[in-house]
Simulated scan of single mutants.
Amino acid sequence: MNETKLEILRILEENGRLPIDTIAKLVQRDKEEVAKIIQSLEDEKMILGYRAVVDWEKDQENTGVTAMIDVKVTPKRGVGFEQVAKRIYRFKEVDALYLMSGAYDLSVVVHGETMTEVANFVSEKLSTLDDVVSTTTHFRLKTYKHDGVIFHDEDNEDKRMVVSP
């Protein structure tokens, strides 16, 4: 991949809302060339979408929960983890799915309206798959940083006195 494409990708990854003429100035190319490069990156599925990073904790009406589920599976001969991964990522509850190294094979990020809804997903859908050996569910309590964006509000620093033995 050439240096200009790489630079454009990094710029868009940092801020996908930048206008093309601003990106063109940053990479010292003309606007039409940058537009063609971005279009080709989208066509090649290198750029898969543009999303905002939202601090949902600031929405008092947001009652949803997010869980990270570690999944141990039995890989299939000839296809490895691909077949079970496809079955899992097709569930509407699944926001993200990663193949991992370590004690568990897959890491599944799930969003639901309540903890019960997530628990039902795990017990009724995920755990019942033939290839799933075990699961461990972790519920997200607070977000400090996501996609490189810090969610920490300096004005809300913890002012409690540190007490140690």
Rank of each mutant, 00 (worst) to 15 (best):
K58Q: 11
H111G: 04
E82K: 12
E124N: 15
L141M: 14
A103C: 13
K25M: 11
D105V: 06
V118Q: 05
I37H: 06
V162A: 12
H111D: 02
K72P: 01
K145D: 12
L126F: 09
K5S: 13
I20A: 01
V79W: 02
G102D: 01
Y89V: 08
M161D: 10
R140A: 13
D131Y: 10
E82T: 05
S101I: 13
D105N: 00
H111F: 07
T143K: 02
R160W: 03
N62P: 00
Y98C: 04
M1G: 11
V163Q: 13
I88D: 08
A52W: 07
H111V: 11
S164Y: 15
V27N: 03
F121G: 02
K142L: 10
K125W: 03
V84L: 04
T114V: 10
M161E: 10
L97S: 08
G78T: 12
H138Y: 12
G64R: 11
E32G: 11
M1Y: 09
D158F: 10
T137F: 03
M46V: 15
I38A: 04
I38Y: 09
E33F: 14
E157Q: 09
K159L: 09
D155L: 08
L48V: 09
E14G: 14
V73S: 10
N156G: 00
N62Q: 14
D55A: 13
T143M: 05
E13G: 14
Y98F: 15
L26W: 02
Y144T: 03
G80E: 03
I8T: 08
E157K: 12
M161L: 15
T74H: 02
K86M: 13
M100K: 05
R51F: 10
K145Q: 13
L129E: 09
R87D: 06
S107F: 08
Y50T: 06
L48H: 01
S164I: 15
L9T: 00
Q60A: 13
D43Q: 03
D147W: 14
L129G: 00
Y89H: 13
